[in-house]
Simulated scan of single mutants.
Amino acid sequence: MNLSVVIPLLNEEESLNELYRWIASVMHSNGFLYEVIFIDDGSTDKSWDIIEKLSAENSEVKGIRFQKNYGKSQALHAGFAMAKGDVIITMDADLQDNPEEIPALYKMITEENYDLVSGWKKKRYDSLLSKNMPSKLFNYAARKTSGVKLHDFNCGLKAYKKDVVKTIEVTGEMHRYIPVLAKNAGFTKISEKPVLHQARKYGTTKFGAERFVRGFLDLITIWFLSRFGKRPMHLFGAWGAFMFFVSFCFAIFLGIDKLFINPYGRLIADRTEFYIALTAMVLGTQLFLAGFLGELILRNKKDSRNYIIKEQRNFPD
């Protein structure tokens, strides 16, 4: 199979039929063997009814329905696990991503041998304050901290080699930073392609102020994971050793002062330096314990799937 198109969605009943017809037209005109995987992330409208109808009428349409809303990252995780294509395309269901871009993205993966190609919405039709400016801030911060030189990390339209999506783990709210996850996993041939961005035709954006905050928290998380995710003791152990060193220095100072300089002065327990040394020792111990716990958790890590699939359509048992 040439292509798997993975589409996470939440309450997009008005756009699904039009989106599928558009994708099918592009696929047929290019002679692709394909599948379209819709992941209903707990919609409360008629989105799943439409997916059921599409899957009954078209064998290439497959559907996954979550028990409740778990988030876009979990939806992508489920879609990636089920995808069978040699190239996987992700796109949003709101008709703002243009399916006409798919053939060019496919060629960049298969002919130019990129591991991942991210869309770049050079001209956006989002509200300046609600999404456009926050996206620019996210992208600037992500470039500086990750070293991945993309203009638009958050574009839903992306193309991947199959090996990439089967290797990376998209959890939490990390869908924004999939290129960084791919780079950290060793897939370094990453590029971008300017793509057409459509104005939203139906419904309203799911972007809110809370996503702005979560995005920056996720960026801090992925910076930490990229540097210390496989070796947490390197961070916590280093800081723990530093705190022990501080404690040791103050203890030596207090000992020398009490024995040789001022033996009849204040009690050691009455001095500020004693409490600094004690606090540094306690902090050093806690940091070492955090490092050990991180190493234990890492070595006992199991399946990170944290969602429940309620129903599926057109997948083999």
Rank of each mutant, 00 (worst) to 15 (best):
I7T: 08
L9K: 05
L76T: 10
K301W: 12
K68I: 03
I88A: 02
E273L: 01
E12D: 08
I7R: 03
T171V: 14
I109Y: 06
L105T: 01
F212T: 10
L9V: 05
E311K: 07
L181K: 05
L19G: 06
K72T: 15
A251C: 11
L76R: 11
F216C: 07
E295H: 08
K206F: 11
S247R: 15
D303I: 00
H28R: 15
D115Y: 04
Q67C: 00
V164A: 02
K46L: 12
Y125S: 08
K136G: 12
M243C: 10
A24G: 11
K46V: 09
S55K: 01
I50A: 01
M108T: 07
Q96H: 05
G172N: 12
F242A: 09
L54M: 04
Y34V: 10
F245L: 09
A93W: 03
L296Q: 12
D49A: 07
Y140I: 07
E14L: 12
I222G: 04
N139A: 01
P263S: 02
V165H: 07
M233I: 09
D49G: 03
E311D: 09
K46S: 15
E52L: 02
A141E: 05
K230T: 08
N184D: 11
I109S: 06
E111V: 15
G237N: 03
A280Y: 00
L283E: 12
M1K: 06
T272D: 08
I178P: 07
V117T: 06
S25H: 12
V213S: 09
R299M: 07
S47H: 00
A277M: 04
E295T: 09
R266F: 15
V26L: 13
I276V: 00
A290P: 01
H234Q: 15
I190K: 00
G294K: 04
C249W: 15
S55Y: 02
Y70N: 02
L217Q: 15
K84P: 11
L278R: 01
K201V: 11
F38T: 11
M243V: 02
N132G: 09
L296G: 07
A238S: 14
Q312G: 02
F138W: 11
D317I: 03
V195C: 01
P263C: 02
F292Q: 02
Y34K: 06
A290W: 08
A81W: 12
K62D: 03
S226I: 04
S4A: 10
F153C: 09
T285Y: 00
M108A: 02
F207N: 12
L225P: 10
G156N: 07
L150Q: 09
E18D: 13
